[in-house]
Simulated scan of single mutants.
Amino acid sequence: MLGRKMISEDDLVDLHGKVVLVTGGNSGIGYITIQMLARKGATVYMGARDEGRATTAIKQLQDENINDGSVHWLKLDLSDPREVRHAANEVLENEQRLDILVNNAVG
């Protein structure tokens, strides 16, 4: 890529104590994003519709050594506003704030 630098884990600051929500994180770019954030110490919520795919992805992340960070499945279907509200309430029940939102999910 001419004139563009690829982002690596070394470019990220320490994320211990930070809470992150990544939508569509059980594969592709979302998965890699979660991997990088968790390795930097973040508490990451993987917003995904399918529990089976999400838990499989989380186990794979744990097997890949995410260091001090953690990854949690958050049932989230962005096509249903009621479910979005429920997911937001679940995060608020467990966390005092949300520091980073990565809106990666596609239709």
Rank of each mutant, 00 (worst) to 15 (best):
M1E: 04
M1S: 07
G3T: 12
R4L: 09
I7F: 08
I7V: 15
S8E: 15
S8G: 15
E9N: 10
E9A: 05
E9S: 08
E9D: 08
E9H: 04
D10K: 12
L12Y: 09
L12D: 08
D14K: 09
L15N: 07
L15I: 09
G17W: 15
G17D: 14
V19I: 14
V20T: 06
V20C: 00
L21E: 03
L21A: 02
V22C: 04
T23E: 10
T23L: 13
T23A: 12
G24V: 00
G24P: 08
G24Q: 01
G25R: 01
G25Q: 02
G25H: 03
S27C: 05
S27I: 03
G28A: 09
I29A: 09
G30Y: 03
G30T: 00
Y31V: 05
I32F: 15
I32Y: 14
T33M: 12
T33G: 06
T33Q: 07
I34H: 00
Q35C: 01
Q35L: 14
Q35G: 00
A38V: 06
A38L: 06
K40Q: 13
K40A: 12
G41N: 10
V44Q: 02
M46T: 02
M46S: 03
M46W: 04
G47K: 06
A48I: 08
R49L: 06
D50Q: 03
E51I: 05
G52V: 05
G52E: 12
R53I: 01
T55W: 01
T56K: 15
I58K: 13
I58D: 13
I58W: 14
K59F: 02
Q60G: 04
L61F: 11
L61Q: 07
Q62P: 10
D63H: 04
D63Y: 01
D63V: 00
E64I: 03
E64N: 12
E64L: 14
N65M: 00
N65K: 04
N65E: 01
I66W: 08
I66H: 04
I66M: 02
N67G: 07
N67P: 00
D68F: 05
G69N: 09
G69V: 10
G69R: 09
S70G: 12
H72E: 15
H72C: 12
H72D: 14
L76H: 06
D77N: 11
D77L: 00
D77H: 02
D77G: 01
L78F: 08
S79D: 04
D80P: 00
D80E: 14
R82E: 11
E83V: 00
R85V: 04
H86L: 09
A87P: 00
A87G: 03
A88L: 03
N89V: 07
E90I: 00
V91M: 13
V91G: 06
L92K: 12
L92M: 13
E93P: 06
N94Y: 02
N94E: 12
E95I: 08
E95C: 13
E95A: 11
E95R: 11
Q96Y: 07
L98P: 07
D99M: 05
I100R: 02
I100Y: 07
L101H: 08
V102T: 08
V102W: 07
V102K: 10
N103K: 13
A105K: 09
V106M: 06
V106D: 01
V106Y: 02
G107E: 05
G107N: 05
G107L: 10
G107D: 03
